[in-house]
Design a binder for these strands. Sequence first.
DNA 1: GATCCAACTTACAGCGCTGTAAAGAAGCTG
DNA 2: CAGCTTCTTTACAGCGCTGTAAGTTGGATC
Lengths: 356, 356
Amino acid sequence: MSKNSFRLGRTEEMRMKKVRLADVAKVAGVSMKTVSNVVHDYPHVTPEMRRKVQLAIDELGYKPNLTARRLATGRTGMIAFAIPEIDHPYFSELSRYIAEEASLRGYRVLVEQTLNNLSAEQAVLSDREAGLVDGVIFHPVRMQPMDIAMLRRDVPLVLLGESTMPVTADHVMIDNVAAARDGVRHLVRQGRRRIAFLGLVAGDITGSTDQRLLGYQQGLLEANLPLDPQLVFSAPDFSPEDSAAAVRRALASGIPFDGIICRDDRFATGALHALRGAGVRVPEDVAVIGWDDTELGRWATPRLTSISPDKRELAATALEMLGERIDGLQGIGRHRIVSHSLSIRESAPAEASVLM
Amino acid sequence: MSKNSFRLGRTEEMRMKKVRLADVAKVAGVSMKTVSNVVHDYPHVTPEMRRKVQLAIDELGYKPNLTARRLATGRTGMIAFAIPEIDHPYFSELSRYIAEEASLRGYRVLVEQTLNNLSAEQAVLSDREAGLVDGVIFHPVRMQPMDIAMLRRDVPLVLLGESTMPVTADHVMIDNVAAARDGVRHLVRQGRRRIAFLGLVAGDITGSTDQRLLGYQQGLLEANLPLDPQLVFSAPDFSPEDSAAAVRRALASGIPFDGIICRDDRFATGALHALRGAGVRVPEDVAVIGWDDTELGRWATPRLTSISPDKRELAATALEMLGERIDGLQGIGRHRIVSHSLSIRESAPAEASVLM
DNA sequence: GATCCAACTTACAGCGCTGTAAAGAAGCTG
DNA sequence: CAGCTTCTTTACAGCGCTGTAAGTTGGATC
């Protein structure tokens, strides 16, 4: 009876009170540091000592307190991943790779949404608090390069995305010019001659689509096709609805076109819907190419041909660079290009299959 | 000149060295605690003192060190959100609401992917380390209720999802039985008589679809429709591909059906593709209802009618309950139901519009 | 057997902040 | 103006861990 109640007391104590390193040390009859060494698999610990300590750890159910560790080491083991929207297909897919690559390197990821909001983006850089994360991977959409350069704080930073970036920070992207050109080439190879670009977004101050637009133009010139400003469609905002509206407007205005290259899969999805609604066949009448190669496009009808950044490589590269910065690497910002390809599906099939 | 270099030195000092509370206190000529009080807007501080301290804070560019704060207070201000896959449309959309609701309550969110992996799920609960987060919102898919109950640790926990949950933890879900019944009713109202359920997944040990299947059956019985086991389709895994294959198999086997209710939008998307590939018209020949009301379904062709859990309410409720637990609320697990609705679109339109 | 070395282990001072208790200041009361 | 109360401010001991420097031990060396 009394034995039982003692046992209960013991058990309760084990789950109620948080066990500290010092408690383990006392039970094992060693110093705190030795326990710490066991926990960290420090090599110079005799097997006997290790066993003794491990026994005490197990008995007490000791769990290291991360916060204390962080305070002592100055490292948090966490990185922030700051993106516009976590539920945008491209970013949610990218998040997954970032999380996986981070976990491989012993980091945890704190996802920070900026919601296309300037002040939220600024908050990412001019953090009110310090010591939360060891580094930041940031995909800006509203901040200008100079803003970023100015606000740049002491925490290691890697930038993502196609907009112009300050030369003071590391940056990873795909070759957007080449990618857009590849898309145009693919359409040209199918015999398309009136290729549209969708699209510019009113108030998109970052000029993030500039490079894609540039590649689009290069692709046309390369094929000796005329540059028709009417074929550059604009949308009021970034949603598929806005994109669909832009395509409807273009159709209504009677401008002829037989191909569209879109700034992202969301835009392409909107375009597909607008075209279908107007009775325009894809790809027979108009071929459509998306951008980002997301699930949204893979399961669109028809399945979307899309420019496909190597997201895994993107994530791995960003983490690699960030890791180097965290490890103390100094120096001017480095720019890295990761590979891209064209995922060819029904909306803009390869030549062989387009012989309708 | 010398003035300039002094300034530079000062500036450098400001960005190089991390400023501590004690530094601010020294400059302001007050105690550390007073600075802390100013930082925290503690009421009993004279305006003059506040001004003086604020000046020092601004001059030195002081940023509180979160880690130290955490160690001292025992609170991290972070919660973990543990889900199978961050790039699953339902979870990425839910993540967004969780992040927003958390931010409203002063919490940051650490997203943890379990990748449908049992050991990863166990790791979520039996955390190796303590003091990382104040609480956990967890959507299990592999763990059994008893496992969860056993491994349940000291950190506050709120469970999400439709599987059976231990009575020892808080739980938020929609009424899956009612929702499935609503879906069937909608189809029946359109005159559908051979309604399929897609689908069971081989090896889905959680029985997470049980309730949806139950509601499906109730809906059929309610309409005096026979229960045909052949109309419950099975898939080997959770992807749209698997779902499409399951539908193709059903079509090939010649079982007649004129409606499908799917376990999620991904399955519905796969079904739409399989049907289209077989020349079956949606909704004319077969009406399709999805589940989760995600962007994937909203932009499918045809646009997907889908059972729509109120994701914002779900997130808010989970955070509310978790917050109460973090604030010390004890007692048995509470179960909360949040509302759902049916988002009616083209794949299973309302009666009026179905008169082809 | 004294000396030295390498392999282990320990003691303890921080990491930067907050909670507590207690001191100091200022305003009231009779 | 002593005696109280209330409002501000201070001093300092932790929070739990790790890095450093200083032991301790056992064995190899001459």
